[in-house]
């Protein structure tokens, strides 16, 4: 069965064009350098990447947030903490009374010179979304690299010691789970108790919520799909699992993504694919205009099926009940 173009699919549902509803969240990609080289990474991030947000662009981000009073800033990468301006950005934003999120790969907390990060993040009340695809070593190491599981556990222990993830604690520690292969994540509400039980029982580790993310068929994950002969079936399954209940909550309708070089995108995935905002809209953080961007039409592609399949998928987890 040939896949129906995503925009046409939405048209059939009565959306002439998909528009944003607001910019509640500014997602800031601080660069593609990372201490890990995960096999699913849509940016193909790794230790050798040189793309990194410079100080001027960081200042432009801070100015845009101050001007617009956006409620949530979401820091991502690569490993955002690798950027030398990360502490300055966090300190500047933390004083603005907004929700500040750091997407942390966990092992970065063990890098030389960064060992004080848990306390720094706790002091500034930064909410953490930490990547941990599973609660067993072989699968995590296969996806994220040798030794990553044990290092991730050590990082989680340090975060728990710093006050993160404890019941009733305001220091939020959520886990982000993505599948280690050509399949979708199960329902969040079913995976969460299982992860909680296994991590607590085996390792004494605590966290608040578990969020699931579908792997996008782009970047290194696309390479894997092609290499393993799974590409077409994965695309067909994404399209075949289209769930209209996910459309109202799609993250592009509430979020704007800033690339390391200051360019603006509808989401992190469009950034990876170099699909800029549609013509006529502000294109860089220096031109940031909340009003113009809040109701913008979204630049769609067939990869968008990755956010609408099954329970749906976003940086905030699934979008519909399983």
């Amino acid at each position: 069965m040939p896949m129906l173009n995503f925009a046409r699919k939405l048209e059939n549902l009565g959306y002439d064009a998909l528009h944003a509803e607001a910019v509640d969240t500014l997602q800031v990609n601080l660069g593609w350098r990372c201490n890990q080289s995960c096999k699913h990474c849509h940016f193909q991030a790794g230790p050798d990447r040189t793309e990194e947000m410079d100080r001027d662009t960081v200042e432009a981000v801070i100015a845009a947030v101050q001007r617009s009073r956006i409620g949530t800033v979401d820091l991502t990468g690569g490993a955002p903490e690798f950027n030398p301006h990360f502490p300055h950005l966090v300190e500047s934003l933390a004083g603005l009374g907004l929700r500040l999120i750091d997407r942390c790969n966990l092992t970065i907390l063990l890098e030389p010179g960064l060992e004080g990060l848990p306390q720094f993040l706790a002091r500034h009340r930064v909410e953490l979304v930490c990547s941990l695809p599973y609660f067993q070593e072989d699968l995590v190491d296969r996806l994220r690299g040798p030794g990553v599981f044990q290092k991730s556990l050590e990082a989680l222990r340090r975060l728990n010691e710093a006050g993160y993830g404890r019941e009733g604690s305001e220091l939020i520690l959520n886990l982000m789970v993505n599948p280690a292969g050509a399949y979708f994540p199960g329902p969040q509400e079913e995976l969460e108790p299982r992860f909680r039980q296994e991590l607590e029982r085996r390792h004494g580790i605590r966290f608040h919520r578990l969020l699931t993310l579908i792997n996008m068929p782009i970047g290194r994950f696309r390479d894997f799909l092609v290499r393993s002969g799974n590409y077409q079936r994965y695309l067909d399954r994404l399209a075949g699992s289209f769930n209209p209940a996910t459309v109202p909550g799609l993250m592009c309708r509430h979020l704007l993504s800033v690339a390391w070089d200051g360019r603006l995108f509808d989401c992190d995935f469009n950034q990876a694919l170099d699909l800029p905002l549609l013509p006529g809209l502000p294109q860089t953080i220096r031109e940031f205009d909340l009003e113009a961007l809040s109701r913008r039409p979204i630049h769609l592609g067939d990869h968008c099926y990755g956010c609408t399949a099954g329970c749906g998928s976003s940086c905030g987890g699934s979008l519909a009940e399983g």
Binding site: L139, P179, Y183, F184, G186, E190, L191
Partner: peptide, 12 residues
Amino acid sequence: TRVLLEAGSNME
């Protein structure tokens, strides 16, 4: 097998 991977099961 796919249902089980998605449900958080494993080869063990």
